[in-house]
Amino acid sequence: MAMGTQVAPSSTQESMTPPVGVMIRTEDLWKTYDMGEAIAVHALSGVTFELERGEYVAIMGPSGSGKSTLMNLIGCLDTPTSGKYWLNGRLVSELSDDELAYIRNKDIGFVFQTFNLLSRASALHNVELPLVYSGVPAKERLEKAQEALRKVDLIERMYHKPNELSGGQRQRVAIARALVNSPSIILADEPTGNLDSATGEEIMSLFERLYEGGNTIVLVTHEHDIAAHAHRIIHVRDGKIERDETVK
């Protein structure tokens, strides 16, 4: 692949730059919250793992285990207190806010438990948003957004607002939005958490299709049934990786 052209961001990190084909590499990631008066809560305490292109990984753990914090770090929504994080060979743990915004826009597609759709915008406009922020002109934007909605079978409901859609449909809009900019990874945080089990299964089979289509998927969940869809499960407990198993 064309990955050979990639160069490390800075010379001192060169030796640690992950090899080609590794999409995510974290090294001793810490996230500490200061609760005042010298009380520090470690949400993550030294997480190191690698993730390759095309993997379907579930991050599992009970609530408070730090799995959401880990996802926020992977998704560049948050920055680690210490440690290093490479995404596509780029050391993103040291980028500025705007550069992180750029990565969120181009490389990451989020799917949230609560969907996080703009309530006043139509499904189509919600899907268009990432393209708006990458400066895609209107005509091309419409085509891409419609294509993404077609992939989740919602093309005929594209002018509906989120409150006119069912939970499953909303989540599919969110998935279309995550897909629209052709991201490197799709990050799903409890994507079925607000859905009944039948709809949840629908969504999970959609993820399966996306995985088969070559997408890299990271799923955060506390449910075994959901995690079972993934091909690798990283168990997180107390801010540390407890177990890393390959399922299929």
């Binding site: 064309a2 990955m3 550069e99 181009k106 992939k151 991201p183 299709r209 088969e212 289509g213 070559g214």
Partner: peptide
């Protein structure tokens, strides 16, 4: 589904 296949290689510069 063929439509889903997207080799997501982003070698864009910042």
């Amino acid at each position: 589904m063929a439509v889903l296949s997207q080799p997501q290689v982003h070698l864009h510069e910042l």
